[in-house]
Design a protein around this nucleic acid. Structure first.
Lengths: 226, 226
DNA sequence: TCAGACTAATTGTCCTACAATTTTAGCAAG
DNA sequence: CTTGCTAAAATTGTAGGACAATTAGTCTGA
């Protein structure tokens, strides 16, 4: 009843065989991250079968994948709810993310792979733009920046894990705290971090990432408790 | 064809409604961790439906959960294989585990919860036993020790994540490297770590955990490449 | 020997049906 | 009016069969 997914009838884009589940997962993930589906909203299987015009099998599998990503909670015999993060959980997730991404920054700063460093430089180029940011664009730039670090770090497992951890946190970071000066501060921190990585200074890179995320965590928590 | 799960006919213990999937997951996880199912072994859905006398639905769900835990790999249209870790992946996973568990050790050392500290002391008591260890018992003691630290740390998300990361690594740590002197060294490291936590010295605790896992990683890798 | 077609095995998806459980609504008693 | 019990509704959990789609392996023919 809470379902505000509007596209419903699958505008002709019937996904290829074997891509049905992935398609549903993407749609639902987008809906959750954009708050189309609010935290706490119920995801009823029979509704989803109608919305996506598929049977319960793929729907159930999609829900399980989203649960594995931490975007929904699954309660036995009650179904799936869009995950609602309390302040404690947000703090805990940031603590983990700090550990993982500061490690990634350290590894990235130690990388000797010239090609990978080149790709990294290209991927983070947008942070040097002088144009003022709007929240939506900043989020994309931010994701690309963090992903570039995780990629340069060269630890594939670490990258998978960290990217998954980001998702629920993004849910918490709705745009209303992203004021222009906050965005500017974040961009400055990104540049400092990039400089440390370019200078091959692992300690400085890890410290910069830690400081960056500590501030982000404080902001996310300020919003949540306020 | 590779299935050596012998119990097949469910010796009367038909799990309650709603526990079918959990039951299958546990059985398969045990079989994988004990190497009954060797790395690379195929898990064919139709075989599993016969072995466990359930339909394909629960089997598919169980396989997906094991994939989420990192115990199996899922290849589209080819099915599930027991995950085979290469040296690089083992190294990467240990790098992550070091970051997470040294954080946990630091948090545990900072804990002010007297009750939790009491439960921690009780849970790790076995490490002070003077009896010589055998590999199987040591693994149980080791798991309990690491879990106790993660519990005392008080970060529930961190505990979940770290426990899941341990599973694939346990697969790699078959008993053949656990010689008596290796076990004795591990127990000494456990005691040093416990002392640092008891002394509320976060830096020492984190460092002790890091050293402990670095050595464990070196051992696991020595086995894998040899 | 190698390319290509054919076959077998297996997964991906759909459908229907029913059992089990939780939630909700309604009703009766205090 | 509230409380507690009962019955109905809603929803998930599981079964079982069916077919399509894809991959792997085999076999044939040049």
């Amino acid at each position: 009843m809470d379902l505000s997914v509007t596209d419903a009838l699958e505008s002709g884009a019937a996904p290829a065989h074997g891509a049905t589940v992935a398609h549903i997962v993407e749609r639902l993930r987008d809906a959750i991250l954009t708050r189309e589906l609010a935290p706490g909203a119920r995801l009823v299987e029979s509704d989803l079968t109608l919305r996506f015009a598929v049977s319960r099998g793929p729907v159930r599998e999609a829900l399980r994948r989203l649960a594995a990503e931490g975007l929904i909670d699954h309660v036995p015999h009650r179904g799936a709810l869009v995950r609602r993060l309390c302040a404690k959980e947000i703090a805990e997730l940031f603590q983990i993310r700090i550990a993982l991404e500061s490690l990634a920054s350290q590894l990235a700063a130690q990388s000797d792979d010239a090609q990978a460093r080149g790709r990294f430089a290209a991927a983070i180029a947008p942070i040097y733009s002088r144009a003022p940011r709007i929240p939506c664009d900043y989020l994309a730039e931010n994701n690309a920046f963090h992903d570039a670090i995780l990629t340069l770090a060269g630890n594939a497992q670490l990258r998978d894990l960290a990217l998954k951890l980001q998702l629920p946190l993004i849910m918490a970071q709705v745009g209303d705290v992203l004021t222009p000066d906050v965005l500017a501060a974040s961009v400055r921190e990104h540049r400092a971090l990039a400089a440390a990585i370019a200078a091959r200074d692992p300690e400085a890179a890890a410290a910069a990432m830690r400081a960056h995320l500590v501030r982000a965590a404080a902001m996310a928590l300020a919003r949540d408790t306020g």
